[in-house]
Design a protein around this nucleic acid. Structure first.
Lengths: 130, 130
DNA sequence: GGTAGGGCTTCCCGGAGCTGGAAGGTCAAG
DNA sequence: CTTGACCTTCCAGCTCCGGGAAGCCCTACC
């Protein structure tokens, strides 16, 4: 299987797949013409990576997850710990975003949005926030 | 006022302030010794920028906001539109993160987290999610 | 006057995770 | 033989800075 097929089947752009090889996440074989050759196992890893990335795991976390995935003697506790740490990151981000959302929507609410220059949004940004 | 004071008062690192000058967000004067000189107005812009950035506006959005801030003939509608667009971005990000959170916490829930290799998290990542 | 320290300057590199594009080899179809 | 779709490598750039080097400036102290 060439990179185009691997891309279609995994849902990852070919560029991304090449990048993942560059940084050592996957090691596809090479055909005599220099083309990358993807086997079933490579494809599994790619879809694994696509899913892990879509859950927001960083590349380095994905690298660790992939190692655990391949290690038949792993302890599920190690995986769980990694996932829980990541969940904490997500929750922090969520908290941050919700605070932004709150402040911003208050400012928007207060702004008439007409042709006049008076604007609580700009005021809120220039003086103390609320 | 030198960059160190401007940094302390605005809450922005000196590096960031230099960067903002580089990309033309601010234009402090220069002393004869080459040091940047910040006036009241520069400081206002810096705190404005710090607040706008903390609400998640991109640099380019900040540039526009700053222009509107300085334009005495602006229409508050223009500011409001920008803020509303940004709110949409925030909401998209929130939706995305909450979906991640949901999936991830389900997987974590299902994982015993013991010394054995069996792990629903890895299973969830390698097969279809859910 | 010399020196130690802190502050300031510019410049260049790196990071996270790709994406776009150029230049060129390969392959199957017509 | 040519066209067009693949594939290859390599280099640059995106966002928003942060780290660090090399070197000038200024004040305080001895």
């Amino acid at each position: 299987m060439n990179i185009g097929d691997a891309a279609r089947l995994s849902g990852l752009p070919a560029k991304t797949i090449r990048y993942y090889e560059d940084i050592g996440l996957i090691r596809p074989l090479r055909d005599t013409n220099g083309y990358r050759v993807f086997r079933e196992n490579d494809l599994h890893k790619l879809t694994f990576l696509a899913r892990a990335r879509s859950l927001g795991f960083t590349i380095e976390e994905c690298r660790t997850l992939l190692e655990l995935y391949e290690d038949q003697n792993r302890a599920s506790a190690d995986v769980k710990r990694l996932a829980e740490d990541h969940l904490v990151q997500i929750d922090q981000k969520l908290t941050e975003l919700m605070a932004m959302r709150e402040t911003l929507s208050e400012l928007i609410e207060a702004c008439k949005g007409d042709h006049r220059p008076d604007c609580p949004i700009l005021k809120g940004l220039s003086s103390v926030t609320q």
